[in-house]
Write a protein that binds this DNA or RNA. Structure first.
Lengths: 192, 192
DNA sequence: ACCTGAACACCGTTCAAGT
DNA sequence: ACCTGAACACCGTTCAAGT
């Protein structure tokens, strides 16, 4: 990459982060280019789609989620690890307004720039779930897809102003549906 | 209303229903007007906002939900009634793509044309919940807000292509979180 | 009363022309 | 290699002018 291109790239990312913080996933691409004092076509050259821009904006955070899952796997009992990580993913999809819709549709579209990152999150989640299932503390009639869907659904709800005030409680309700072992009540409370 | 206005009104609704079936909640107002062979300003005169249009498109269905709740209240045991109605609301928010977002945001905005209808659905739902709670078959640590949020969240997930295949199972998981009485297992199965 | 066309300020896509 | 401006086909809002 040429020096000026590299400079544009990082500047665009910084400006985009601002715009997206304000307007969520529907922030105007034109507006981002304008704020960065760059032609719209230049923005589109670096990030041909909205998904590509968000892949760049979110990749650090996404990697951190994967890392966190590996950490929890060794540092916490399976049920606690699962619930703690669940909560982190829910918080993540709320990082910018509307991200959860982007992630959910990317999850179904291998051509999306966000697909690979979603697949990774999905698979480390499935691992945490299986670990708790093997231990007998997570219900066995659900799979990684269900876990991902529940995290997304809760993230969606928590992002709605109407439901946000009850987000913690909704988390508790869903967590109690996932965990089965009555002895894990203190784990649940700790995670809440 | 003048005769020509009345004719425009019902014709617009019919055309809008088509467009919305195809493109969901983001259907172009301009396109609807075009399809109806009417000026865009005429459409906006009848339905000043997208919410107003959807209020008209959904009101019959919304009334039916309220009616259904009253029926279930007398015809079914509280837990079964709650779960059956829950399922109907989830299906309702999937009637057109994106309706759930409209409903969720209307729920928080008294100025929205959809606010009153949402409030009614909310309150009949809260009644069904209380009835089951009084009987001891629904968990007592949740309220009408939580119920509405869970129905919406599940409706959102079911509307995502990535999660739709598991929608029935997700419903089962959440239903099991709401119901507490182990003797209600057959009711749950019947509703599934 | 009700309808209409046009002006306005946006949006993302595309591409030929510049350095 | 990379950037740019302009043309294009959209969008919803607003309002003066028509019947």
């Amino acid at each position: 990459m040429r020096a000026d291109a590299r400079k544009n790239y990082s500047h665009l990312l910084a400006v985009a982060r601002e715009a997206v913080t304000e307007h969520g996933v529907d922030a105007s691409m034109r507006d981002i280019a304008r704020r960065a004092d760059v032609g719209l076509a230049t923005l589109l050259r670096h990030f041909p789609t909205r998904e590509a821009l968000f892949e760049a904006l979110l990749c650090t955070h996404l990697d951190a989620l994967t890392q966190k899952a590996r950490e929890l796997e060794t540092s916490k009992p399976p049920d606690e690890a699962l619930v703690s990580w669940f909560r982190e993913v829910v918080a993540f999809v709320q990082s910018y307004r509307g991200v959860v819709d982007l992630v959910a549709s990317a999850h179904d579209d291998p051509d999306s720039a966000l697909y690979a990152a979603c697949a990774t999150v999905h698979s480390v989640g499935a691992q945490l779930l299986q670990r708790a299932q093997a231990e007998g503390t997570a219900r066995t009639d659900m799979n990684g897809d269900d876990l991902f869907a529940l995290m997304s659904a809760l993230g969606w709800a928590a992002g709605q102003p109407a439901f946000a005030p009850r987000a913690d409680h909704l988390f508790h309700i869903i967590a109690s549906a996932i965990l089965t072992n009555p002895s894990s009540n203190d784990a649940k409370k700790a995670a809440c």
